[in-house]
Simulated scan of single mutants.
Amino acid sequence: MKTYIALIRGINVGGKVMKMAELRAALENLGWMNVETYIQSGNVIFQSMEGMGLEEKMDQCIQNTFGYSVDLQIFLLEDYVRIIHQRPEHGDDKFWHVTFLKGELKREGWEEVCSVKGPNEEVYLKEGAIFLYCPDGYGITQIHTNFIEKKLGVKGTTRNWKTSTKLKELAGLK
């Protein structure tokens, strides 16, 4: 049995309402075990003996249960931890955000991403993620998920550092 972390993008905003209790029940009906959600923004920890096709199964399950498709990413716990451990070790944790990337990105767009960073912001491209330090607030940065997707030609979903580390803890790692 392997542990996975799923990140669902864009739910409980813009009309895509998803109750976490209903999502847990639907995923348990797939045979997934120890399904747990964290807050209402699409964070799921679960265990499964399956390893292939989990994203497609989860998306189909969500379509069947809630009537719409979503962008999502599922990580083997070890891969998720490897990604978040790449974060630079400075600054106040509350100002860090991580955008998990899905697919091959267009490297030529990276300079444009960096060119719009605010005077107090720092941005780092690591394997599978972009780490953004924004002490003036995520709400005012120009380096948000939609901008990253447009410039790098890759899907992504962003979480603040508290959520990113809490998911690791809920999966049983400190």
Rank of each mutant, 00 (worst) to 15 (best):
Y4P: 06
A6W: 02
A6R: 00
I11N: 00
V13S: 09
G15R: 09
K16A: 10
K16S: 05
V17C: 03
K19N: 12
E22R: 08
E22S: 13
E28A: 12
L30P: 04
G31Y: 00
M33Y: 03
V35I: 11
V35P: 00
V35N: 03
T37Q: 07
Y38A: 01
I39H: 09
V44L: 00
F46L: 07
Q47R: 13
Q47S: 13
M49Y: 07
G51R: 12
M52R: 10
G53T: 12
L54M: 08
E56N: 09
K57P: 01
M58A: 12
M58V: 10
Q60I: 06
Q60D: 15
C61H: 01
S69W: 07
S69Y: 07
V70L: 01
V70N: 02
L72A: 08
Q73L: 08
F75W: 06
L76M: 09
L77R: 08
E78P: 01
E78W: 04
D79V: 05
R82V: 03
H85Y: 13
R87Y: 03
R87M: 14
E89T: 13
H90R: 14
D93L: 11
K94N: 15
F95M: 11
H97W: 10
T99W: 02
K102V: 03
L105F: 13
K106N: 15
K106V: 12
R107D: 15
R107A: 12
V113G: 04
V113Y: 04
V113N: 00
K117T: 13
P119R: 14
P119I: 11
N120C: 11
V123E: 09
Y124F: 15
Y124M: 08
K126A: 11
E127T: 07
I130Y: 00
I130W: 02
F131S: 04
L132P: 06
G139Y: 07
I140S: 14
I140M: 11
I140F: 11
I143Q: 08
I143R: 02
N146S: 12
E149A: 05
V154S: 07
G156W: 00
G156Y: 02
T157E: 05
T157P: 07
K162T: 15
T163M: 08
S164M: 07
T165A: 11
L170A: 09
A171H: 06
A171C: 10
G172L: 04
G172I: 03
L173A: 04
